[in-house]
Amino acid sequence: MSCAQTVQDYALRSLGIGERLLPRGEITLCEQVVLIGSGLIWNVYFGLVALVTGFFLATALAVAKADARAWLRKPAEWFVFLFRGSPLFIQFFLAYFGFLSLKQVSPVFDPLTSAALGAAVVLFFNTAAYSAEIFHGALRSVPRGDLEAADAYGLSGFARFRRVVWPTMLRLGWPAYTNEAIFLFHATTLVFFSGFPARQQRGDALYYASYFADRTFNPFVPYPIVALYFILLTLAIIAGMGVVNRHLNRHLPKDARATMRRRPQFIR
């Protein structure tokens, strides 16, 4: 079977399009590269969904956490502690078994037991908590002068937040937020090892890699392929977040701009 044929058969297999049977017998390098790449679609899906939705919740949580009123601040603090203080792996398990019990209450909750929705919900809450902590830190370091300038312009309430505080908060928090995005994408590899079923073996990149490692008993091919894909994905994230960073910093003189450096320091 030629490699072009393999691409045709397996490139979208993780979505259920194309050949259903996984390769048997001798497994070629091409098949591994294509199938693991196909699995990467799931990682990108989980990462993007959680990042985009989590962003808004994170902003709300950061503002709530900085609020003087205890009934707003306390719940936000507890939420952040709950999701930052426990392993994501346990959160996945807990959520999956919780969703299973909900399913028995009413079939409305049925979709939550699938990875596509259930795991995305968990990742959404998780990344919201981590990002909220970053944004909260950034919010506290918004320069006083900016706020005084906003007062001088007669801005107050929501207008002040939207036009002065929020953009500055994003600008200050963005380098750390980029790191968070990278680790969010890395964390998506946990989904199919944590109870959420890979129906009809439609899994993510690591799922296929561990499948190949088990089949061929040779970890030296599939895992480096995963690593390579993730390094490319990381570079793409850095590039994408870099564009936003430049946009956020566009009003500053060139030498005052925060340089984006990749400082991956935390995983979960």
Partner: peptide
């Protein structure tokens, strides 16, 4: 080590070390 998802490293290393 820092550039790759940690879980991929865990899965890889246990087999690779064993072999």
């Amino acid at each position: 080590v820092r550039g790759v998802p940690d879980i991929a490293f865990f899965l890889f290393f246990v087999i690779a070390l064993d072999q």
